[in-house]
Design a protein around this nucleic acid. Sequence first.
RNA 1: GGACGCGUAGCUCAGUUGGUAGAGCACCGCCUUCACACGGCGGGGGUCACAGGUUCGAGUCCUGUCGCGUCCACCA
Length: 786
Amino acid sequence: MSAPRYSNVDPNALAKHFDSTEAEKRWDAHWQALGLHRWDESRGRDETFVVDTPPPTVSGSLHVGHVFSYTHTDVIVRQQRMRGKNVFYPMGWDDNGLPTERRVQNYFHVRCEPTEPYVADLVLEEASAAQKKERPRLVGRKNFIELCHQLTTVDEQAYRSLFTRLGLSVDWRQTYETINDRCRKQAQLSFLDLHAKGHAYLSFAPTMWDVDFQTAVAQAEVQDRPKQGHFHHIEFTVEGQPDTFVIATTRPELLPACVGVTAHPSDARYQHLFGKKALTPLFGVPVPIFPSELADPEKGSGILMVCTFGDQTDVLWWRSEKLALRQILGKTGRLEPLTFGNEAYPSADAAAANAAYAELVGKNTEQAKKAIVELLRNPGPTGRAPLVKEPEPVNQAVKYFEKGDRPLEFLSTRQWFARLIDKKAELLEKGREIHWHPEFMATRYRDWTENLGIDWCLSRQRYFGVPIPVWFPLDASGKTDFDHPILPTSEQLPVDPMADTAPGYQESQRGQPGGFVGETDIFDTWFTSSLTPQIGSHWLLDDERHQKLFPADIRPQSHEIIRTWAFYTIAKAMLHEDSVPWHDVVISGWILDPDRKKMSKSQGNVITPMHLFDEHGVDAVRYWAASARLGADTAFDPQVFKIGRRLTTKLFNAAKFVLGHQGEVGPITHELDRAFVQKLRELVEKASRSYDDYNFAQALQDTESFFWTHFTDTFLELAKPRAWRTADEGQKQYSEAERSSAIAALRLGLSVLLRLFAPVLPYITEEIWSWAFAAESGQPSIHRAS
RNA sequence: GGACGCGUAGCUCAGUUGGUAGAGCACCGCCUUCACACGGCGGGGGUCACAGGUUCGAGUCCUGUCGCGUCCACCA
């Protein structure tokens, strides 16, 4: 048995300082040559670690928040790889949705018009200022998608170079764009599966509608914003009675859409009115007065009008009381032409009602509000003005589309939904099967799921996105038969029903009586995003691969999209395969600027990340990111980069010392050395436990603290005399055994600490590893050393 | 209005099952000794948001209050 060989370095041959930029390039190339980050598809599920990477929205803007959260994932991934796991770490680009749609429209000065035919050889450049003054060019959906590819390819490159520079150990062979053929196919397969299982349905029902984007929106895309409104106190009369009462409303313009009046059943002021009919002022429309527990006697006058539709509660009352549908608002948010005195809009005085409505028609809600207030100032049937006093300001919370500028309206439109309300119990159960990091984030999922009010509205009336793969037959009179949708086979996907012919028909039959029409709507972008685990695993396209990659191990994401991305992903996995999509969710916090505000582009406080790498070194930036606990918001603090930098420098210098000693390395026999090794062992156990719990911040802190306190400040100084083995001025002369024990302990300590630091500081640790340990261990990269 | 998180040194943050308050930065002083001045050694600095409670003992557990943040909430 030959003595093990040990490699040394000549400290004088090494650079005085660690050149991080040069090392980053060198080791990136090394890892690429080794294929270090590649997923090995031949290995089984149990030895594989699968990441459901968040596909960033490709819009060309990158900020330090990306650096922060993606580093968290990479630290976890690198640790798993060192544990011997076969890592599947893909990258997706989310180029499906409104941000891309807007950017492409702007850049090329085009508009998507699904009815436009496809132009095979369309070549467009960035539009000039002069071109942008003209009308935008109309292009078909397929051309629009191609333009999207053209533009996002550039953006993807920018993202990739940032992520590469950051040292993300992504397997770049596993990339996808959410709008590419395969993802569109998988989204449409998902729909076919939901439809076949009865989870997807078509409904003509009131849904939340954005009048600017002119599309339906889902509950998850809605946010409340404070808004100042005005209470308008309006007097109603009662049919066949002398009674009157006053309602308070912030939306007087919906008076023509009033279909009922309600108050709390125990409200003594109004009990005598229940069962009677009220007559609306100006329009003289008789509407039922009914009691409802949902009416709050404390709000306004305690009695209110129900309109189609002022808000979500109106929808509830409309359903439960089977009230009439009088929809005055059109999809553009303006009051549509209609006639009072017919069955839908009955009136005691049709002529007066139509005259009043003529003042409102064509106006938007704000304009109509002003106009109707003026009308209500005129004397009514009682001889008094229905507007009994001047409007009073009131603060209210109003629902907006998260990307919209005007309040949402409730319109009755045709939409596709996925059934979720009746599956809350199962959804909650799946949420409990998943481990949330930090744990309290599970509450957000639970609360959202428990309070879900409406099914998932899947359809959007937009142009760019994944088309809903459905056609409808037209009957002999040319009327659309929505009850018998025509679906493609899975082999035909992806399809665009506006461009592709319905199965069993000729293209010439499009729009003709007895022919067909294509569904114009596209999917909610979350419909595709909620499939990222299945997109990674090639669900329904490659069964063997799917078995090896699904469910995934971790889903990294931020907390504000628990109700959307996490929720819908859980819902999809449950509906499709009755499975969880992943076992663990790791939630990164936000980066706050020094004033504790969230960094965002719109607030102009974004710090672009690239220069941080040049200035501090990638390892130092990663150190900053990894110092933050999962779920905790962190202030942007350049001071922490400096600490990270100091750590890499110290590692560099300590390694120079430890590995600079020539000669044999003996067994660890000295008492001091054995004590050190014992402490080292305890550190490894503790840090490993932390890493296993995805608590890398704790592992880093413990390792760092040990490194400074026990290694450099204490043990290294204690071991120095023996390592040098000098006998200056009467000092003790150490034996060869004492010397070689010290060297062995120092090398062991360094090698262990390097490996504990490696997930966070991949470059400096790889650099030092290469000096000696790579040759000794036969493992050319520390990132595979266990 | 509800839920969740946070509140510890001037700043950024740790504080495991309760057991005498910690680190780094910043500040002050000393030291160029052969891994490192991108260092080392030493020092000052805190009513642990506030008020009660449990306990021999509370930064830690319980209750309440205040402040900050996030998410949610039926627009009268």
